Amino acid sequence: MSNNSITKEALATALKKLLEQQPLSKISVKHITDYCNISRNTFYYHFKDKYELINWMFYTDMLENVNSFNDPSKLTESFVKVCKALYAERKFYFACFQYVGQNSLFESLYEIYYELWKINIDMGYSECGFKLSESELSLMAKLKAHALVGIIKDWVDEGMHDNYMKYFEQIREILDSESLGYSILSNQRMMEKRAEEFDKNPIRKKNLKVC
């Protein structure tokens, strides 16, 4: 592990320990650096504030525990896994989710899902032979990103209990059924293209008449 990674891990551990004693709003950068005997200058070399530290902790956690986290083609599957990973560390994440301002974990989640949905939606429509405009793609990605983050926010507001896990699975099934629709439409589009190619091929049409 590099020195940078060791320093970041030390800051992350300090924040986790401090959150066991007091809310995030009461914890300052000085509290974090004093806890792990690291200078404030070193903290600001790695992170601009405690919220960026939290976002780094979240992203690192997801990459380690959800192997499909940043794979647009497995977005619905990874969503459930992300929620399970959040639940596994719910005390920490519940405390972090209490902040909803700029650079918050909610904001970071939205940005991540927005980019993943843009790629996912574009792939789905491209397979069907359709090309969305950038504004259409952006709008659809915003709608879906807001939907997923909004569901997570509802879960947090209700205490992040495990009874939501079945709900997350239902959401995955709904989103997967939409993906199945893309597949059916893609196959239909492919058959239509083959029919068009056949109609344009005079040799094939002539052979068909001979038969």
Rank of each mutant, 00 (worst) to 15 (best):
D157P: 01
K74C: 04
V80R: 00
N37D: 11
T42K: 07
D49S: 15
N187M: 10
H161D: 12
I174H: 07
E196W: 07
T76L: 01
Y113I: 11
F97A: 04
S73Q: 03
N37L: 09
N201I: 00
F94L: 09
S104W: 06
S25M: 05
E107H: 01
H161R: 07
W56K: 09
L19T: 06
Y93C: 09
C83T: 06
L148S: 10
Y164V: 06
K48W: 00
T7G: 01
I119Y: 00
L53T: 04
M62G: 04
L75V: 09
R189K: 05
Y44G: 08
N65E: 12
F43C: 02
E134W: 08
L132P: 12
Y113G: 02
A195M: 01
Y182H: 12
K16W: 03
Y87F: 11
T76Q: 09
Y182C: 07
H31T: 10
K144Y: 11
Q188Y: 12
C83H: 01
G159V: 04
C96S: 09
G181V: 02
M165K: 02
Y35W: 10
G101S: 14
N37M: 10
A85H: 06
T33E: 06
K30L: 14
I27A: 01
K81D: 13
Q98K: 14
E134T: 12
K8R: 11
M165F: 05
I174Q: 08
M191Y: 03
I54L: 11
K209C: 08
I27R: 00
N55R: 07
P72T: 07
D34Y: 01
K206C: 05
E134N: 11
V156I: 09
H31F: 10
E89S: 14
I174D: 09
F79H: 03
E64L: 05
K144E: 14
M57V: 13
